[in-house]
């Protein structure tokens, strides 16, 4: 049995909250640069500003976006790990609160009715998976409200199949238009149950831009959707252009004979996430 101190988890989490909010993943930055080269006019100017913003954020420590998001954590905890000094959830909450405070990150969590800010961005949203071994992996996403608001879950009929899935996604992205800070990344969860589909969709957003789905059949569907969505000409910030979406990521799971659950999780261009292993 491997022992990990809750304090060590908190320290890592505090640091990763700050880093995720100040430095975009390389795949996102590379995609911005490629898009900047391809676009023209107002769309090109958007990518120029985003590249400059990323550089400035890294240099000054100012967050990439003032919406530093709710802090979402996917934890893969080895079955042979014991956390000492607190539960994994407590350790993550403690680290997140510290990271958002010390990093001058915006606290965006509030009561749904009174709308009173909780003041410390708590609670962190923590999903723990128990996996074989003695590893401890944490993936953190800083997820803004604007793009999350444009996300949807629906229960399709099995007969609707891929045609129905594709139409729902395309119409959702068209309806969202300029609102979620395009070009977006579209995370899609297909299958599972009512609560599993959105988890699949959210987790899909972690896979790097350009990294193909391991199943060639799904990879083909992702590419088909990218091509179709980019025909919409919503473009960067809704100003028109080649890029309405930077990538589409699909995760699938078996579902009930009667169901075809579908979740579309929209990610803004500021796709902030970070992974650490303890």
């Amino acid at each position: 049995m491997r022992t990990i101190l809750a304090k060590d988890i908190s320290d890592k989490v505090a640091a990763m909250c700050m880093e995720a909010n100040r430095k975009l993943p390389e795949d996102v930055l590379d995609k911005f640069a490629a898009c900047h080269a391809e676009e023209e006019g107002a769309a090109k100017e958007v990518f120029r500003q985003l590249l400059e913003n990323a550089k400035l954020s890294e240099e000054t420590g100012l967050p990439l976006c003032q919406d530093c998001g709710l802090a979402i954590f996917f934890v893969e905890m080895g079955n042979d790990v014991h956390v000492e000094g607190g539960t994994p959830r407590q350790a993550i909450d403690e680290g997140m609160i510290r990271g958002y405070k010390d990093g001058y990150l915006r606290k965006s969590a509030c009561d749904p009715f009174t709308r009173k800010n909780t003041g410390d961005n708590a609670p962190a949203i923590v999903h723990v998976d128990i996996v074989p071994g003695d590893g401890f992996k944490i993936i953190m996403m800083a997820k803004g409200g604007g793009s999350e608001n444009m996300s949807r879950v629906t229960m399709l009929s099995p007969a609707q199949g891929w045609k129905g899935i594709k139409e729902f996604v395309v119409r959702r992205v068209a309806e969202a238009g300029p609102n979620p800070c395009p070009p977006t990344i579209i995370g899609i969860g297909i299958g599972g149950t009512f609560e599993v589909a959105p988890m699949l969709a959210k987790k899909a957003l972690i896979r790097a831009i350009g990294e193909p789905h391991p199943d060639p059949a799904i990879d083909k569907l992702e590419k088909e959707l990218v091509e179709t969505l980019n025909k919409l000409n919503i473009g960067p910030m809704g100003l028109g252009g080649k890029y309405t979406t930077l990538d589409v990521k699909i995760n699938v799971a078996p579902c009930h004979l009667a169901s075809l659950p579908l979740a579309v999780n929209v990610q803004c261009h500021s796709a902030r996430h970070k992974e650490v292993e303890l």
């Binding site: 100012l62 003032q66 919406d67 530093c68 001058y104 915006r106 409200g145 608001n149 979620p180």
Partner: peptide
């Protein structure tokens, strides 16, 4: 339409881009 991030020492304001207007 903005909710800025906290101002770090030495700056008047933190990050301050627009929020969704609808």
């Amino acid at each position: 339409y903005v909710g800025p991030s906290p101002a770090p020492p030495g700056r008047p304001i933190g990050s301050c881009g627009p929020t969704t207007s609808y």
